[in-house]
């Protein structure tokens, strides 16, 4: 019998550790992928993801079921990842839920002239890997919204709940995150490899 998250949470609250283990199994991949995109390396991401579940277990009594359990986990994951990123490789100014200051209004820069047909580059497997790595190189809040929306298919409502932000702000962040990713990718390519 496959119990729902809510049923497993209720059992875990009563001290049923196998029930909590089932929750970990069910959500470990999505939580790990979110921490991986935000933290940027596997070792720290795995430690952060473990921390998410330990914190969740300690806080089970505070989970009131107003949101989905997965959304509640994402909320913890975002905070743990921001903290982890702050301690490791990220600049302090970019590891918060506030947006990084941009030198433009969020729109992408104009395409470099040497790129006659840049979309063709996405046909190359190596370049696609490069793009995926660039998601993790974004400021963590941008990594988070791109990961949740495009990789984990969360709705605006769910992302807003996880980040504790208004939906309008989430949409704006996502818009800027895509533009920042687009900009980052172009900046990461050497001009002489573009032609």
């Amino acid at each position: 019998m496959d119990l729902s998250d809510e049923e497993l949470v209720a059992r875990a609250r009563e001290g049923d550790r196998p029930a909590f283990a089932r929750l970990v199994e069910r959500h470990s991949v999505s939580v790990y992928n979110l921490t991986l995109r935000m933290v940027g390396n596997r070792e720290d991401a795995e430690e952060a993801a473990q921390d998410v579940f330990v914190r969740a277990y300690r806080s089970l009594d505070r989970f009131r079921g107003d949101s989905r359990f997965s959304t509640w986990l994402y909320r913890i994951a975002v905070n743990v990842s921001l903290s982890s990123a702050r301690r490791s490789r990220r600049d302090l100014s970019t590891t918060s839920l506030s947006e990084p200051e941009d030198d433009e209004d969020g729109l992408p820069m104009q395409l470099p002239d040497p790129l006659a047909d840049p979309a063709e580059r996405f046909e190359q497997a190596e370049f696609r890997d490069h793009v995926r790595n660039m998601v993790a190189a974004l400021p963590p809040i941008y990594s988070a919204v791109i990961s949740m929306y495009h990789m984990q298919s969360l709705s605006y409502d769910e992302i807003a709940e996880a980040l504790e932000l208004p939906i309008g702000t989430v949409k704006a962040r996502l818009f800027r995150a895509r533009a920042a990713l687009r900009k980052l990718i172009y900046r990461s390519i050497e001009p002489d490899t573009l032609s």
Partner: peptide, 14 residues
Amino acid sequence: ALIKTVEATPAAKP
């Protein structure tokens, strides 16, 4: 292409 690439990212496993 960028969005399709990001959305096609295979999930990493812990």
